[in-house]
């Protein structure tokens, strides 16, 4: 039985993997075509301000070095095969391998995103539950108002407000940079890192709460209106016991799944928050790459963020697959 279970899980993962693969190849191809056709001159982007000092011969040499003189399809295949070998190319801004930059920055972003993800998930869930249990009271109205307002709030504006209040007025936090300027990387303490993490993490959490809370609220209201809760009430259950026995287990799973499926939103939020707080993560790198025409870095980030979103969706699917008895046990019969 166990073997069959694993076999089915294998097929499930295989199908998911295949779908991911087709999507990923398409994304690589489309993004490659897009950036190749952009009006930004990659040589100029590479050389930057020294453009005037570069003669036509040097230009040609650089073009040859990057393979820019070849047809687009050849360039794509070259890039693609290098990609398969794990070589994402060299960033034009940082003059270092893209993979290295992404790896380094991902660690920073991961800390930020996980903090925000956990905070917004837990707080949002509690708010949603509270709101649904107290439906149509002032608590519910307050939470709903908060969520609807937050859902319309530009993330970057929330970040600016945090900066104004906590960094400028109260002076509790530094205004920018992931680590203090002028300090060697090795000397940066954990306390420093945490200090620079707090504001962007709070900004992302404040915004992220809305989605989970509203979703949980709706789900719990549906659950509370269900036949099985009606029957539970008929058996004398009410209040917190009712929620604990029947509400929680039926609401937690969709909420967790939703959080995992929202990795894309999280990444988008991180782009803006990192930009405002000069936090050296993937998001800031994305903006830099876009602004300064760093094609290899931009492509690398598009692919990486796709992986990131896919990982979230896959985890969400797997949780449903593994936890929900309706899918879990029906496979065993």
């Amino acid at each position: 039985m166990r073997k069959m279970l694993l076999g089915k899980l294998g097929i499930f993962l295989l199908l998911k993997g295949l779908r991911m693969l087709t999507l990923l190849i398409a994304i690589c191809f489309i993004s490659f075509l897009l950036v190749k056709n952009s009006p930004i001159d990659p040589i100029q982007a590479y050389i930057g301000a020294d453009m005037l000092k570069v003669g036509p011969e040097q230009r040609e040499k650089i073009a040859e070095y990057w393979g820019l003189d070849q047809p687009v399809m050849v360039q794509f295949l070259n890039w693609g095969s290098a990609l398969l070998a794990g070589d994402l190319g060299t960033s034009m801004i940082f003059r270092r391998p893209v993979a290295e930059i992404i790896g380094e920055r991902f660690v920073n972003s991961l800390v930020l995103m996980i903090t925000a993800w956990v905070l917004s998930g837990v707080i949002g869930f509690v708010m949603g539950v509270l709101s649904a249990m107290k439906k149509d009271t002032w608590i519910d109205r307050l939470i709903k108002w908060y969520c609807y307002t937050l859902a319309s709030t530009p993330t970057f504006w929330m970040g600016l407000l945090m900066l104004i209040v906590f960094a400028v007025w109260l002076g509790w936090f530094p205004i920018g940079l992931g680590v203090p300027a002028g300090v060697l990387a090795a000397d940066v303490t954990i306390a420093d890192r945490i200090e620079h993490l707090i504001l962007p993490a709070i900004t992302l959490s404040i915004i992220g709460v809305a989605n989970v809370a509203l979703h949980t609220r709706q789900k719990l209201i549906d659950v509370l209106a269900s036949d099985y809760v009606l029957f539970a009430r008929a058996r004398g259950e009410r209040g917190f016991i009712l929620f604990w026995r029947h509400g929680l287990r039926n609401v937690a799973l969709p909420a967790i799944t939703l959080q995992f499926a929202a990795f894309g939103e999280l990444f988008g939020g991180a782009v803006l928050a990192e930009q405002i707080f000069s936090y050296p993560g993937l998001g800031q790198a994305t903006v830099e790459a876009g602004l300064r025409g760093d094609v290899p870095l931009l492509l690398g980030l598009v692919i990486f963020s796709t992986f990131f979103v896919f990982a979230g969706n896959l985890i969400a699917d797997l949780i449903y697959y593994a936890v929900d008895p309706r899918t879990r046990e029906s496979r065993m019969i």
């Binding site: 897009l34 939103e265 988008g268 876009g290 931009l298 979103v309």
Partner: peptide, 20 residues
């Protein structure tokens, strides 16, 4: 699925970048 598998903001940045 293709459009939903890249973070929205990243897609926007990519397209905006492409079109200069």
């Amino acid at each position: 699925d293709l459009f939903l598998s890249v973070p929205h903001l990243v897609t926007l940045i990519l397209i905006a970048f492409t079109l200069g």
